[in-house]
Design a protein around this nucleic acid. Structure first.
Lengths: 159, 159
DNA sequence: CATTGATCTAAAGTTAACTTGAAGAATTAC
DNA sequence: GTAATTCTTCAAGTTAACTTTAGATCAATG
């Protein structure tokens, strides 16, 4: 009787080490992202993580978003736009990329606006700063905690 | 003999509470900024902080810089461009504002570049991501710690 | 001059985004 | 078949930028 070799249809998935090598993310970061529900690897029967090829894209998206100043919470909600029941298609990615790009545009616009206001404010060297209305605490790049309540409020008394 | 009234040339300075009111910063944040050497109030003989009017501008600069994503270390080094022996003049502020604006421009350029690359990468919906070279960990908005070593590296094998 | 409110210092707590370490289990390599 | 890797979890540590708390002192007011 011939011995039938174990049928390996295709590898079960990528290990965390392989994903780490491909993305440049450390294994600990990847585990953290799983905890934060940015990726959802499945497990082998012995409990090891196995990732899909599509997760590389997912993690790349996470990394790019982060480099642009988005928080994990924001990224998670962006990724929520992807289907959970199947591998995202080209169209799926296009959709969330567009939303993402929109947010990015807003952020760039905001920065540019602030920069221009700065030109007319601190940049001008005027000593009162009284006209400056750079008031927009909500839009701070990585606003955390309570933080400043408003920006600029020097009354033009002396000087 | 006539009693000579105490000569009050001008108030000794602003209290931390007054600075807090004018800038919108909490007293604790202001104390923290002193610790971080972003402001240098002097002290009364009983140990209370007294600020100069010019410190309001200084703190405003700190707040704006922060809202644009600069770290305290970066702000400190920017402020180092101001004279320490005298009250900064209009020209002093213009000088550091220009340097600041330059950094801001760089940051905006960088963001825009990334956004455009994104368009041709994730944005395109292509499934390989293999051409993407969004590699610039140094320029991450608030890059902290070790972090990702590079961005995007999916080889165009299957899918 | 007694009370109320502001300020002081020092130490500990907070959040985000991870890393590091320990100790054990699974896989791979020879 | 054993040694070397790689993986697992869980807990604790790290950095930035502050806040919170406590107990004490200072300043302003009726």
């Amino acid at each position: 009787m011939k011995k039938i070799p174990p049928l390996r249809l295709r590898p079960t998935g990528l290990t965390i080490g392989q994903i780490s090598d491909r993305t440049g993310l450390s294994p600990s970061a990847i585990r953290y992202y799983e905890e934060e529900r940015l990726v959802h690897p499945h497990r082998t029967d012995t409990g090891q993580r196995r990732f899909e090829r599509a997760d590389i894209r997912r993690l790349s998206f996470v990394m790019i978003s982060q480099s642009l100043g988005f928080s994990i919470a924001e990224i998670r909600s962006a990724l929520a736009g992807l289907p959970s029941n199947r591998t995202p298609t080209k169209t799926d990615w296009q959709t969330i990329s567009e939303q993402f790009r929109q947010k990015l545009d807003e952020r760039i616009t905001q920065m540019t606006k602030l920069r221009d206001q700065l030109d007319g404010c601190i940049g001008c060297g005027c000593l009162s700063l009284s006209n400056c209305k750079l008031y927009n605490p909500e839009d701070r790049a990585r606003g955390r905690g309570t933080g400043p309540r408003y920006l600029m409020g020097d009354s033009p008394t002396t000087e």
